[in-house]
Design a protein around this nucleic acid. Sequence first.
DNA 1: TATGAATGAGTGTTCATTCAT
DNA 2: GATGAATGAACACTCATTCAT
Lengths: 243, 243, 243, 243
Amino acid sequence: MARSAPRRQVNRLPPERRIGDIMKAAKEVFADKGYNDALITDIALRAGVVEGSIYRFFANKRELLIKVVELWFEEVLSQDAAHLAAVRGVWNQIHSIVYNHLMTIRRDPALARLMFQEIRPSPDYRNSRLFKLNQAYTNRLVDVVKKAIESGELRADTSPGLVRDMVFGCIEHRTWAFLRNEGDFDAETTADAITNMIYRGLAMGEPTAGPLDSVFIRLEAATTRLETIAGGQPKKRSPRQSL
Amino acid sequence: MARSAPRRQVNRLPPERRIGDIMKAAKEVFADKGYNDALITDIALRAGVVEGSIYRFFANKRELLIKVVELWFEEVLSQDAAHLAAVRGVWNQIHSIVYNHLMTIRRDPALARLMFQEIRPSPDYRNSRLFKLNQAYTNRLVDVVKKAIESGELRADTSPGLVRDMVFGCIEHRTWAFLRNEGDFDAETTADAITNMIYRGLAMGEPTAGPLDSVFIRLEAATTRLETIAGGQPKKRSPRQSL
Amino acid sequence: MARSAPRRQVNRLPPERRIGDIMKAAKEVFADKGYNDALITDIALRAGVVEGSIYRFFANKRELLIKVVELWFEEVLSQDAAHLAAVRGVWNQIHSIVYNHLMTIRRDPALARLMFQEIRPSPDYRNSRLFKLNQAYTNRLVDVVKKAIESGELRADTSPGLVRDMVFGCIEHRTWAFLRNEGDFDAETTADAITNMIYRGLAMGEPTAGPLDSVFIRLEAATTRLETIAGGQPKKRSPRQSL
Amino acid sequence: MARSAPRRQVNRLPPERRIGDIMKAAKEVFADKGYNDALITDIALRAGVVEGSIYRFFANKRELLIKVVELWFEEVLSQDAAHLAAVRGVWNQIHSIVYNHLMTIRRDPALARLMFQEIRPSPDYRNSRLFKLNQAYTNRLVDVVKKAIESGELRADTSPGLVRDMVFGCIEHRTWAFLRNEGDFDAETTADAITNMIYRGLAMGEPTAGPLDSVFIRLEAATTRLETIAGGQPKKRSPRQSL
DNA sequence: TATGAATGAGTGTTCATTCAT
DNA sequence: GATGAATGAACACTCATTCAT
């Protein structure tokens, strides 16, 4: 009754622009507060729209989060693919994947945190598009390892999947503090260290300086081959090392 | 109509017993529902107390969670310490740590999930007792590695901290599906694989640059000749990529 | 991404056609969902127009509902009038009104429900056109009764208005389950029963004071019993009274 | 941060009292605004509690409505039963039911409106307790009619269910205007009229003064004799109740 | 000390209606 | 005249925590 001038100001924008504004705002607010503490009102305010407008483009708050993370992840996915495509050599490829993953985390720690802490733990993650994207992402490392095993550069008795878990798990733990704004890391150094540790443990070894244990490994391999040629069965080694 | 106020029995119990009941109930409910969906009411009901009694012993819901996880973690910490103390040899010690960590996850996936997804991401985790406990826990691996480096069994040019991240990160990723009730894992196999991969990558091989190389070269040459004679194809070797 | 704005075709149609489309769509959606759950968006979509166009022709959602029901009610009103006009005899006229009312409900239960549950309970119904139309509709029965009273066929000590309430109220209760899709009714049988009950209660019997028609009824019953005893089948009486 | 004196005032009352207060307030607000426009906030305010307290006793707004109406209906049910139990004679019993129903509507028009317009149209009404109660309520009339048919006082060729629909439908239509605060009705007059119309239409009639009566008496006597001869049981007749 | 009724702040979502284009 | 993006008010429900008894 007797409302005072209910005249609306309508600001018409192309949908792409609106969606862009909303996602940008959402990204910021989610990054800032985390999913639960982020308010639709805040996102709307920051995007310069009213709450209702968000629901024109996104079914609900959760979908908005997912769309924001998906957009980011797709960009990461395509950028890293470009980087990786230009790299030759197993060590270098592993290093590229590790380094780019680290750089992604450094560039967008908030989004990485959303991915790790909000998206991945949710019960429906396994059926989500982001799960698929993430599989594609981590499978690149698996593929590199598999091919290197086939080509003989990496040991055949290792699980590519375990390498994947080791690499990405290690990176996640390593950057934990950084993700909570409590520490830092050097991408170059870390990438080198991780790559070396992985490669060294898997490589068949070359005669170069450096990983000299590889010489031992090669010796063992040569011996095995000799044994095979000699018709005898290579001796089974128990994995337990005696001290 | 005319409910005769079904007052709960007033059970006067020693505080320790009360606290124990509450923590047991809380553990179950938190494990079952996760932190957010767990209701104080449910915990009180299951513990046979009223809500108010919980607040006599715990400042708030969060503290209750933390106390529950702490209790659990302390048990894990002492059990694993006992196991580890009995183990000799670097490989075996690493294996013990990995295996016991895996078994802990298998035994109490819900509590591990609480630790990973509720406790660790919280902003005040770094100043918490659980952080300290966790440091003590993971430092065992660091110590093993450090000592092995000092004793010369493991390479000196590696970072014990990185090994720690790699091991625990790997385990976490490996058991991810299990933690969400969507998959399983074999603790023995996984522990062997992880330990091997780590140990192999770090173990000292032979004295660097030097005499053994020529032995190897000659051995390999001989092997190749033998293979050729035997009709087998010598394995193709990819040239090493320069960094 | 980069949606190319799937603009709807701009169809310039004569207003009558537009209005017709909208009302048809509105009728369907209102019938389907009820007033509250019907969405303007759905109506617009089904009518092949945009929301704004609806507001060009109808002040608001409520007016649209009212116009839809009015249109329907006017058709019912004129059809039933035609039917009634052809009928002679009080019993037959009452029966016609009852029967046609039942058939209207059977034909358009959703619209009848809108009328009963959405329109009629609203506070401004008494001042609405639909109230007037409904009065005209039910007054036909009042007129029949009044005339029959004047002609002496029906008792003078009865209230035509009460007859109206009894007939329409009875029909409404009788078809309640059907209107909620939970039951059915037979229009013929129900119309016969209602008409008989009404007519029997009102028809002039004998010149005495009081329910003299009951004497007739008892005579008939006695005769029937005699017939039964005599072994013959009581004659089936058509419920239609000849005038 | 720095909230100003978050000290709560807690006003502890016996649950029955609280429930009573809430239901009283709810009754008033629902009656005043109808279900949809009634606000939980208003109800809480009027009951002198906070919104949360309402949800301690009632699962949701709808349940609150239903409980309010149920309570009322149960009282009506038991009061009317007491009234009816004291009444002898078919006409009087029908009249009692009609009259009490009218008086109930007059006493609590708002609750009757809630029952008619909010409860009954809802899709789950058929499975509700109120539906059962209402059946019990209206079945009283059905029982009276059935027994009167058995006793021979009312015609055997009528449907008790139809009588029920006629009576209650008629009353509802008759009181429509009153229910919306737009008219009034006289319970006595209306009850008499309805009862007469129903009874007159159904009664077997009595030996009122008049020429035909002797004919009937002789006919019936003859019939009875015939029936006896034929071996059938003469029908028992209940004597007419005086008004 | 135990009780458990009472508190009350906090928010995602809907959808009829408007109006710039 | 038609479009449909933008508006923005409106509201039931939850549950950790408190505190009078």
